[in-house]
Design a protein around this nucleic acid. Structure first.
Length: 975
DNA sequence: ACCGCCGGGTGCC
DNA sequence: ACCGCCGGGTGCC
């Protein structure tokens, strides 16, 4: 198989991918392009068929690979073949060698293959009855630009491709016939249809015909119906020997309907798949349930249980330990229930051997059969010294925020009983079950690989969802002290590690000193957030692909992010033959689909459907939504300014009103829009805190030198953007992206204004004020600087404001009522967040801050810290409205304080949704602070009005918008 | 005969 | 392979 890996660069290949054009930002598409360029196997997407050739496969009696009529074969170069460096090997879809291409043709093929002019695909068109050779139809694919040189090179060797139907080569009777392909019978899909089909690829994979399955008693949390369905589906994927996709049985033989490959042996299904449920539907819990419920032969994981800690499964065991979570703690992450390091002499660990009679025992018996469990568990479960786990969870169960089932409904317990009764006699589906060999039965451990940011979540979840008396050995393979003993790792129930650790171990591995995670034979490997690995050529990708496991799972809320190629990595990890080989994937799926072939798309859909279960939050079970969110209450809290604040505010308002009315009088409001925005922002900042105004500098007219002007423009642009106004680009009428500011201080998207410049023949004019400008004069703010200011708000000179007091009053009251409640404090002004830090500190609130300046890594740490349920975890998060994406999960908070109104109500909603989302267990209260008799009140009115407007008139024209904006300004300024 | 023809040995790259 | 190719044996009809 090594020869499959031999790939060459394909740098001249243009990145034509209809799917990558969906990206929102250019930074994103650039990184995609870089990722794509790093992939060694060129995509077949842009390939055209150069022509076909009849050739011969020779020497087939020396090899075992069999081929059926019509079967696809692969052509693999063997440059190191001792007899002929031009050798081209032929293999079937299973990777077995069939023979070689006859040497004359191979000599020609070697040239074009080695120079990456073509990809060659073979089909054996019909069966011959001799044991020495067979015919093969070769198809040559490549990019159009390589077509002439390909034909020229082939012609040198006597193989000519005519532009029409047939030809004969001069190479005697071995010469090939070339012909063009038949025209496709069906029409091709349009790019639009294809894109839609692709977007929907993972939709509608809700149905699981496997019904529901109760989790093992070891799981303390009762699963919701959709989680039971997932568990049932996962168990079926692991246990049943249902035929893999595209296989069928015919007369005792097994045929693959795509490759026409056949086998006498029943092909085994991939034991695993992709659980692609939306975030928050409980993929982690379901996976834990799978680990505990489906050990070998569908039996629960045999573990010891301790005395007296459970009402359901009393045990006579001496049980001196409950669960152990051992290993080095992640550096820099302080967890309250820090995993305890336990010295485990690796030499004493043995891979357990299963006793034969164990297989017949019923699960309930097995739980109590400690001897049997001990045999299976080896020495890990009982005999070695272990530290007793720290205290049980501080939060009682019915207050446990993660105890979703119990907290969503008061009558839940009753419901559960009834449901259990209904499902008491499940229809036993007789399905062929996988027979596990003795070697397979010796595997015990599940390896879970996740991003560092969710590592602690897994530990928490194991703690929460596994009965406290269950001695589940979960080893955290992390940190410099991690135990690298393979036998130790293999003897665990669960080994948890991160992609980085896995990749690092793999990278430094030598034949002498191998990566233990890669030597171990895992029962199961689980990739959490599996979309993380998309490129098989990265350290991570390679490390993941080389893990050895019987069962493989991918957990991901977004299995495909950009293109079809993302899916290939997942299939490669699952080892779904033959698609795990890039060549077959390209040939059977990637190229046909990207060229709009309906059959190809249909095959892709079948493929995905066979290995994926995906439910979204809007999916339903038995007509009911999967999960119901707790209630959300939004209220406005009016804030009264102090007399001094009011005086300052009125001063600023009158000044601003004067400026704006004078613009209005001469009709130059829009051409001085940046000034108007600056005035509005100043007023809004007055409403929050006086110190926010400190750094706002003078207006443009004071600018002297060009450098000064430029600096002022940058300042202005920055202040406009920082103001939180969802600035609208007058060209595209969308929110500005890649903002640039003109010398006349109007803000546009860079691409939009570039388009304007290009379209105007003579000097470009600003679309808003018609003043002239050139592209080189455009000023932009370096993205890093957008939220960069963070100064002057601390220390000695600190003063309070009415809004600060209003917030603090709320926070103090909440803390006195229930100190476990966490709050999000949201502002568009990052400097306001800085100001808020001082009183929070003084009042003894532990808090974290999340804004746009944080690195990805730091951001994850902050979120993890805030989401922790530990008693000393932060109770307040200072959150910048613009920070974070839609995916941000802050469900630990149940109170949201919006410090000032946002121009764009959607931004507020999105922010609220960060905590009012799946996983939230408490009722959510949102408080919007609005300063009475101020620009903020006017903004709220306009917000409402805008919402109405958007609903009523969908297609408003540009001029309408302009008019409406002037009206808005009038209303805001009480003019 | 520096050929033609015969028939045995042989057979992927 | 019921072929092609190779190379040794052979040699008028």
């Amino acid at each position: 198989m090594a020869s499959y890996r031999r790939r060459f660069g394909w740098h001249s290949h243009p990145e034509v991918n209809i799917f990558t054009d969906r990206s929102e930002s250019s930074a994103e598409s650039l990184s995609q392009a870089i990722r794509a360029a790093a992939s060694e196997e060129p995509d077949a997407d842009g390939s055209v068929l150069f022509g076909q050739l009849q050739g011969n496969v020779v020497g087939i009696r020396h090899y075992t690979g069999v081929v059926n009529p019509g079967e696809m074969v692969a052509l693999v170069r063997q440059p190191n073949n001792p007899y002929d460096h031009n050798a081209v090997m032929v293999t079937n879809a299973d990777g077995n060698q069939v023979g070689h291409i006859k040497k004359e043709l191979a000599a020609a093929m070697a040239v074009v293959m080695d120079s990456n002019l073509v990809k060659v695909e073979g089909v054996v068109p019909y069966q011959t009855n001799n044991a020495f050779n067979m015919p093969v139809t070769l198809s040559f694919w490549g990019t159009e630009e390589n077509n002439p040189i390909f034909k020229q090179r082939m012609a040198v060797h006597g193989y000519k491709f005519n532009s029409d139907v047939t030809m004969t080569t001069s190479y005697g009777s071995q010469g090939g016939r070339a012909r063009l392909p038949k025209k496709p019978v069906t029409t091709l899909l349009s790019a639009e249809e294809l894109k839609n089909a692709f977007d929907d690829l993972f939709d509608g994979l809700v149905e699981s015909k496997d019904g529901e399955k109760e989790a093992s008693e070891l799981v303390s949390t009762s699963l919701m119906p959709h989680q039971k369905q997932a568990l049932s589906w996962m168990c079926a994927c692991e246990n049943s020997s249902k035929l893999p996709p595209f296989w069928e049985e015919r007369g005792g033989l097994y045929y693959n309907s795509l490759t026409f490959f056949s086998a006498k042996e029943r092909p085994q299904r991939v034991r695993g798949g992709i659980l692609a449920d939306d975030m928050g539907l409980g993929k982690t819990l379901t996976t834990i349930a799978l680990i505990l419920t489906n050990f070998h032969q569908g039996m629960p994981l045999p573990v010891k249980r301790c005395e007296g800690l459970t009402e359901t499964a009393p045990s006579k065991s001496e049980g001196r330990v409950d669960r152990t979570i051992v290993g080095g703690a992640p550096s820099g992450s302080r967890r309250p229930h820090s995993p305890q390091v336990v010295e485990t002499p690796a030499e004493t660990q043995e891979v357990p051997i299963v006793s034969k009679d164990g297989k017949k025992k019923k699960p309930s018996v097995m739980l109590e059969d400690l001897d049997f469990a001990a045999v299976l568990g080896g020495s890990t479960t009982g005999t070695k010294p272990k530290n007793k786990r720290a205290a049980k969870r501080a939060v009682p169960k019915d207050e446990d925020p993660d105890f979703v089932c119990e907290s969503t409904s008061g009558a839940k317990t009753k419901n559960r009983v009834q449901r259990a009764a209904r499902k008491a006699l499940p229809k036993e589906v007789v399905e062929p079950c996988i027979k596990e060999s003795a070697a397979e039965l010796s595997a015990r451990a599940t390896l879970i690989i996740c991003p560092l940011s969710v590592l602690s979540n897994w530990l928490d979840q194991f703690e929460q969802h596994v009965h406290a008396d269950v001695q589940l050995s979960v080893y955290l393979y992390y940190g410099p002290e991690r135990n690298r003993s393979v036998s130790f790792l293999a003897s665990q129930d669960v080994v948890l590690t991160t992609y980085n650790v896995l990749a690092a171990d793999h990278a430094v591995a030598t034949p002498k000193n191998k990566s233990p995670l890669h030597v171990a034979q895992w029962l199961r490997v689980v990739l959490d957030e599996g979309h993380m690995i998309r490129n098989p050529n990265t350290q991570m990708g390679r490390a993941v692909l080389q893990l050895q496991a019987q069962r493989r799972w991918i957990l991901s809320g977004t299995p495909i992010q950009n293109s079809l190629k993302d899916l290939w990595m997942l299939l490669a990890f699952l080892r779904l033959k033959p698609f795990n080989i890039k060549e077959w994937w390209n040939r059977i799926i990637q190229r046909p689909v990207s060229q709009g072939d309906r059959a190809g798309l249909s095959n892709l859909q079948t493929l995905v459907r066979c290995i994926t279960l995906r439910r979204t939050k809007s999916s339903t079970v038995d007509g009911r939504p999967l999960v119901s969110l707790p209630e959300k209450t939004v209220c406005v809290e009016q804030v009264e300014l102090t007399q001094q604040e009011r005086d300052e505010y009125e001063l600023a308002r009158l000044e601003g009103q004067g400026t704006i009315s004078s613009y209005m009088a001469v009709g130059t409001v829009l051409s001085n829009y940046a000034d108007v925005l600056a005035i509005l922002m100043r007023l809004r900042q007055h409403c929050c805190h006086p110190d926010l105004l400190a750094r706002i500098t003078s207006d443009l007219s004071a600018a002297g030198t060009p450098a000064e002007l430029r600096a002022r423009l940058v300042e202005k642009l920055r202040s406009v953007l920082a103001s939180g106004f969802d600035e609208e680009c007058a060209v595209c009428l969308e929110s500005v992206r890649l903002p640039v500011i003109t010398h006349c201080a109007h803000v546009y998207c860079r691409p939009c204004i570039a388009k304007v410049v290009a379209s105007e023949k003579e000097g470009a004019r600003c679309p808003l004020c018609r003043s002239t400008f050139s592209i080189s004069q455009l000023v932009e703010v370096p993205p890093e600087e957008l939220d960069g200011e963070d100064d002057g708000a601390h220390g000695e000179g600190w003063r309070t404001s009415s809004k600060v007091e209003a917030l603090l009053g709320n926070l103090v009251r909440i803390r006195s009522e229930d100190s476990s409640i966490k709050s999000l404090v949201v502002s568009q002004f990052t400097r306001f967040l800085s100001i808020l830090e001082t009183p929070l500190r003084e009042q003894g609130f532990s808090f974290v801050r999340l804004d746009g300046t944080l690195s990805q890594k730091r951001r994850a740490q902050v979120i993890q810290e805030f989401q922790s349920s530990a008693p000393d975890s932060p109770v307040v998060m200072l959150l910048s409205l613009r920070a974070g994406g839609v995916g941000l999960n802050l469900t630990a908070a149940s109170r949201v304080f919006l410090m000032e109104p946002a121009w764009n109500p959607a931004a507020e909603e999105q922010c609220i949704d960060r905590c009012h989302r799946l996983g939230q267990t408490r009722n959510v209260f949102v408080t919007k602070f609005i300063v009475k008799d101020s620009v903020e009140e006017n903004m709220v009115k306009i917000q409402r009005g805008k919402q109405d407007l958007v609903e009523k008139a969908f297609g408003s024209k540009n001029t309408d918008r302009k008019a409406s904006r002037i009206d808005d300004i009038r209303a805001l300024m009480d003019l």
